[in-house]
């Protein structure tokens, strides 16, 4: 991506994200009261985040791989099941992957 394309991408996406935030503050409450609208929004958020877990955890370019990120995600899931705070979950995952790679795996 060229520098111009990169800046355009950054600025257009930032403007779109701000417009979405402001839109929420400006919409009439009746519009969001639509059960269908709120249900779709909720499910889209779940799908996007889960999809990002798969991409960030298993993809290497266009290849699906199993490396140090997978045990790191397992540790993160265990920490979440034990109700660990957000920052601890993230640190444990990083430490697991870093440790395994320091040992020469993944």
């Amino acid at each position: 991506m060229t520098t111009a394309a990169l800046w355009t991408t950054v600025l257009v996406a930032s403007l779109a994200c701000f417009a979405l935030k402001l839109g929420g503050h400006l919409v009439p409450r009746s519009w969001l009261a639509s059960e269908r609208v709120s249900r779709v929004t909720t499910l889209v958020t779940v799908a996007l985040l889960v999809s990002l877990v798969v991409v960030q955890g298993f993809a290497d370019g266009r290849t699906l791989v199993v490396d140090a990120r997978v045990p790191a995600l397992a540790v993160a899931a265990l920490a979440l099941a034990l109700r660990a705070p957000f920052i601890l979950v993230v640190v444990l995952a990083a430490a697991t992957a870093a440790g395994l790679r320091a040992l020469g795996w993944g």
Binding site: T45, L49, L52, A77, L80, V89, V90, A97
Partner: peptide, 17 residues
């Protein structure tokens, strides 16, 4: 990757969802 930051990003998405 040596610091596990790629795994940290995956874990952050998992924690959010």
């Amino acid at each position: 990757r040596a610091w596990g930051l790629d795994a940290a990003a995956a874990a952050a998405f998992l924690a959010l969802v």
